Simulated scan of single mutants.
Amino acid sequence: MQDAPHLSPDFSGLWIPLITPFRDGAVDHPALAGLVERLAPTGIAGFVVCGSTGEAAALDEDEQLAVLDTVARAAPSMPRIMGISGYHLGKTLAWVGRLGEQNIAGLLVPAPNYIRPSQSGIRDWFTAIADASAVPIVIYDIPYRTGASIARDTLLSLAAHPRIRAIKDCGGDMAKTRALIAGGRLQVLAGEDAQMFGTALEGGAGAIAASAHVQTARFVDVLRLLGEERLKEARALWQPLSPLIEALFADANPGPIKALLAHDGLIADELRPPMTRSPANLLDRLLAIQSAISRR
Score class of each variant (00 low, 15 high):
Ala134Thr: 08
Gly265Ser: 11
Pro76Lys: 11
Gln2Asp: 13
Pro21Tyr: 10
Arg185Thr: 05
Ala40Ile: 06
Gly46Thr: 04
Thr146Ala: 10
Thr199Ala: 07
Val222Pro: 01
Arg116Tyr: 06
Ile142His: 03
Asn103Thr: 13
Ala111Asp: 06
Gly25Arg: 11
Met275Lys: 06
Ile19Lys: 00
Met1Arg: 15
Arg277Phe: 07
Ala166Lys: 02
Pro273Asp: 09
Ile19Pro: 02
Ser291Lys: 14
Ile257Asn: 00
Leu237Gln: 06
Lys91Leu: 08
Phe22Arg: 04
Gly227Tyr: 06
Ala209Val: 09
Ala151Ile: 04
Gly203Pro: 03
Ile115Thr: 14
Ser133Pro: 00
Ala262Thr: 03
Val138Phe: 05
Asp284Gln: 12
Ala26Ser: 12
Ala205Arg: 00
Ala105Arg: 01
Met174Arg: 14
Ala4Val: 02
Arg165Met: 12
Thr276Lys: 12
Ala194Lys: 04
Asp3Glu: 13
Met196Pro: 02
Pro274Gln: 12
Glu61Ser: 15
Asp264Tyr: 13
Ala57Thr: 08
Glu37Phe: 07
Ser133Ala: 15
Ala66Glu: 07
Ile137Val: 15
Gly172Ile: 04
Gly227Cys: 11
Ile167His: 02
Pro5Arg: 13
Leu226Gln: 00
Ala33Trp: 03
Met174Leu: 15
Ser278Val: 05
Glu101Cys: 09
Leu260Gln: 03
Pro136Ser: 14
Gly106Phe: 01
Ile137Ser: 03
Ala58Leu: 09
Pro117Ile: 15
Gly34His: 08
Gly184Trp: 10
Gly90His: 10
Pro21Thr: 11
Leu241Cys: 04
Gly90Pro: 01
Ile137Tyr: 04
Ile293Cys: 07
Tyr114Gly: 07
Ala200Thr: 05
Leu261Gln: 02
Gly106Thr: 03
Leu189Gln: 02
Phe249Trp: 12
Ile19Thr: 07
Pro112Phe: 10
Leu287Met: 14
Gly90Lys: 14
Thr20His: 07
Val188Pro: 01
Thr20Lys: 05
Pro21Asn: 15
Gly265Thr: 05
Pro243Cys: 14
Asp124Ala: 14
Gly265Arg: 07
Thr42Pro: 01
Pro256Ile: 05
Met82Arg: 01
Leu108Ile: 07
Gln102Ala: 13
Ala159Cys: 08
Thr177Ser: 08
Ala134Gln: 12
Ser149Pro: 01
Val67Cys: 04
Ile104Glu: 00
Ala57Asn: 06
Ser77Tyr: 09
Gln215Asn: 13
Ala58His: 02
